[in-house]
C-alpha cells in the first residue's frame, strides 16, 4: 500500500529536474534545522510560508503539490535563507529552481512578473518610462526633468529573439 501511495504522490520527473536545476546545492543535505525559516522575510508576514518545509517537500518529491499551491512565488529572494543555511542547501536556490520548473511545466507565474518579462523582451527594460506624481500632484516625466531619452538596448532585435526562446511562450 505504501508503495502505491508513493507512486501516486511522488513525481520523480519533477524531483530529478529540481536536483539538476539547483546544482551545486543539494536539497537532500537539509536536516530541517529551520534556520532558513527563522530568517525568512516572507515567513514574517505569511505564517504558512516556511522555506524548510518547502525544502522538505521538495526532497520527498511532493513537488506537484508544492507547485499547485503557488506559494513559491511569495519568496522575496532576499537570500537570507541561503546565507544562514549550514548545509549550503540555500532554500532560495531551491525555490528559484522550483519557479523555473513551474514555468517550464506550464504553471503561470504572477501576472505582474509576466508583464515585466514581456517588457524586457520588447523594450529591453521591465517598463517603459512612466510619468510620476509629486506630493503636490505635479506630473513629471524624463523629458520634463531634462533626463536624456532612453534608447533600445544594443542589438535589440537579436536579443529579443534569444530572450523569447529562453522565456518560452509567455
Amino acid at each position: 500500500m505504501l508503495v502505491s501511495l508513493e507512486a501516486k504522490l511522488i513525481n520523480r520527473k519533477y524531483l530529478d529536474s529540481v536536483k539538476e536545476l539547483v546544482k551545486p546545492h543539494t536539497p537532500q543535505y537539509c536536516y530541517q534545522c529551520a534556520k532558513c525559516t527563522s530568517a525568512c522575510t516572507a515567513s514574517k508576514v505569511i505564517p504558512e510560508y516556511k522555506p524548510h518545509l518547502i525544502v522538505a517537500l521538495t526532497r520527498m518529491g511532493l513537488i506537484k503539490q508544492l507547485l499547485d499551491s503557488g506559494i513559491i512565488w511569495a519568496c522575496t529572494e532576499c537570500w537570507k535563507c541561503g546565507e544562514y543555511c549550514p548545509q549550503n542547501v540555500a532554500p532560495v536556490e531551491v525555490i528559484i529552481a522550483l519557479k523555473n520548473l513551474a514555468v517550464a511545466s506550464g504553471y503561470r507565474p504572477p501576472e505582474d512578473l509576466i508583464a515585466m518579462a514581456r517588457n524586457v523582451i520588447e523594450l529591453g527594460r521591465i517598463s517603459p518610462p512612466i510619468e510620476v506624481l509629486s506630493k503636490e500632484f505635479e506630473i513629471y516625466s524624463r523629458e520634463s526633468l531634462n533626463l536624456p531619452p532612453l534608447v533600445r538596448p544594443y542589438a535589440h532585435e537579436s536579443m529579443r529573439k534569444t530572450l523569447k526562446d529562453l522565456l518560452g511562450g509567455l
Binding site: A97, K99, V103, A117, R125, P148, M159
Partner: peptide, 18 residues
C-alpha cells in the same frame, strides 16, 4: 551607457538562463 538594458534580475524566477 545607453545601450545597456535590463540586467535580467526579474527574469530569474521564470528562467535562470535568461
Amino acid at each position: 551607457f545607453p545601450e545597456a538594458g535590463c540586467c535580467g534580475f526579474p527574469l530569474k524566477g521564470i528562467n535562470k538562463n535568461a
